[in-house]
């Protein structure tokens, strides 16, 4: 069996008196696109947050290689989110004052890359997502779909091992959503990046290689991995 890139086991997460997760387990394999689906309130976003090291579970383990993300401190987890993981939410959360180019270059600049090299790389990723023409625009000057493609370029610019996308098309109409998903899946396959895609929309889940369904804080079903994930 393929060694997972990230493995969650028996995650429990409580918010106040609500149990968002009640023993959820999931494996994200290297290079796969995995859709996590379920009704709203099922715990699928909390599962993503735990596996991306955004929050720590109250119980259970999150293994990333030899590391335990559930035990890692905030500094280490935040470094990982800049270097090894990319994150995209429903609303891209781009920096409003910066141009698309500067937004995408930002993670590289934070990691100490020179300005020229960061901009060059950012331009390449904007082009791959079909938004190079918007390089000089600020988020408020772009359409929702363009903004999400810029957010994806920013998530991919550090060549992460995994991208975590939480309802990345949730605020888009279906054609814009289609462009965002096609761009994401093509880019991930080309670079061998794993994608954990949280969505309530089966048509978006159909872009993934397999599906895990979440209900009441547990993973109810998880498709078997394909014998060989084709790239």
């Amino acid at each position: 069996m393929t060694t997972p890139l990230i493995e969650a086991r028996g995650l429990v997460k409580r918010y106040g008196t609500t149990d968002a997760l009640r023993g959820a387990s999931l494996r994200l394999l290297p290079g796969e696109v995995l859709a996590v689906t379920g009704p709203s309130g099922s715990g699928k976003s909390t599962l993503l947050h735990c596996m991306a090291g955004i929050v720590r579970p109250d119980e259970g383990e999150v293994r990333y290689g030899a590391e335990r993300l559930d035990q890692a401190g905030e500094n280490r987890r935040s470094t990982l989110r800049r270097t090894d993981f990319g994150v995209v939410f429903q609303f891209g959360q781009l920096v409003g004052e910066l141009t698309a180019l500067d937004n995408v270059a930002l993670p590289l600049l934070l990691a100490g890359t020179s300005r020229a090299a960061a901009h060059k790389s950012a331009g390449t990723w904007l082009e791959r997502f079909g938004v190079l023409g918007q390089a000089g625009l600020r988020p408020g000057e772009m359409s929702g779909g363009q903004g999400q493609r810029v957010a994806l370029a920013r998530a991919m610019v550090t060549a992460p091992k995994a991208v975590f996308a939480d309802e990345p098309t949730g605020a888009l109409d279906s054609l814009a959503g289609e462009q965002v998903m096609t761009a994401l899946v093509h880019a991930a396959r080309e670079s061998g990046t794993s994608v954990l895609l949280v969505t309530h929309d089966a048509q978006i889940a159909a872009y993934a290689d397999r599906e895990a369904t979440v209900r009441d804080g547990v993973v109810e079903t998880e498709d078997e991995p394909a014998a060989e994930v084709t790239r």
Binding site: V185, A202, Q203, A206, E211, E220, T221, D223
Partner: peptide
């Protein structure tokens, strides 16, 4: 119903591959 969902999604993956 879970089995049916898996069958539907498998078909939807094929169709998505066709259109993309």
């Amino acid at each position: 119903l879970r089995l049916q969902r898996a069958a539907h999604l498998a078909r939807m993956r094929e169709l998505t591959a066709v259109k993309t």
